[in-house]
Design a protein around this nucleic acid. Structure first.
Lengths: 158, 158
DNA sequence: CTTGTTGCAAATTATTTGCATGCCC
DNA sequence: GGGCATGCAAATAATTTGCAACAAG
């Protein structure tokens, strides 16, 4: 699905709830689309949006990200570093990716598989809990700590 | 394992790293032991510690919790509400519990099982990633929203 | 003594809010 | 022209840090 189509889809979601796709919101969404795998903080999103649309205010970006989170268009995450991070949810794997976080280099990789379906069925059955979303993170180290995404500061002690 | 034994174990972990089990640290650990299932914020821990030892400062509690986190004695968690929460890790299930978070009442339940061992082996094999820790959270709703732990504000819309 | 630890206050960081102004049906 | 949206600045909330004073080996 390309950018105009995605924007269109998001626009529909917004308008169906009486929100407008203003230029600020559109620019923010574009930045998110262009950095889909980046887990940006609000500040990072702000800086990139500011490149394209310098008049925007930080508060607007926060408000937009909050709105998009409510609409389940983006996912708000916490890796324990005191900053919230945001990712678009592609509609195909809305709820189907997990995270590997390397403690040596701090790099983070996404695993685009859903390993939890069976568990969710079990929760439904055994706990009477019906799952809307989940989050699964593994912290540890890459054996080589040089594998694909994991390139920063790898001189640290293993 | 009772309180004195646990304290003793923690004391050993501290002294082995040249840290002292000061009265402030001991009091903090006691509070954590007494509220093992509570996922307290730093502020909550502080208030309870202050009851037992009114001279303590908030910064000390923060410093203690940070220290204990580094030593893997407590687990620092984030539920996305902007507050870090802390739990003792019992040595038996150091890394073996998952969370159910009910979006209706906000209540949180722990599942004391480890469902991820198989996945971790797979990560090791297929991704060359060796897992030190993990976090698994499910958000959703209890069918009844009245099940055991889930008692607050249940008049909200389901 | 020396080193780690504490309490307080001030600083920092992330995020939210109030409000006057602007924009669009 | 009425209500949602925005930008700015100020407010809030959580956490961290600087520093002088303590405490214990």
């Amino acid at each position: 699905m390309n950018v105009p189509e995605q924007l269109n889809r998001i626009n529909q979601q917004l308008t169906s709830k009486n929100y407008k796709l203003t230029i600020q919101r559109e620019t923010t969404v574009r930045v998110l689309l262009e950095n889909e795998e980046d887990h940006m903080s609000a500040e990072e999103v702000f800086m990139r949006v500011k490149n394209k649309h310098p008049e925007i205010g930080l508060a607007t970006v926060y408000r937009t990200l909050e709105l998009l989170t409510e609409l389940h268009i983006v996912e708000k995450m916490n890796f324990g570093d005191g900053v919230a991070r945001f990712d678009l949810r592609g509609e195909d794997h809305e709820h189907m990716h997990h995270h590997l976080i390397c403690t040596v280099c701090g790099e983070m990789e996404e695993i685009k598989e859903d390993w939890l379906l069976e568990m969710e069925m079990r929760l439904e059955r055994e706990y009477g809990f019906s799952v809307k979303d989940h989050r699964l993170e593994f912290t540890g180290t890459y054996k080589t700590c040089e594998k694909n995404g994991c390139k920063r500061e790898c001189e640290a002690v293993t």
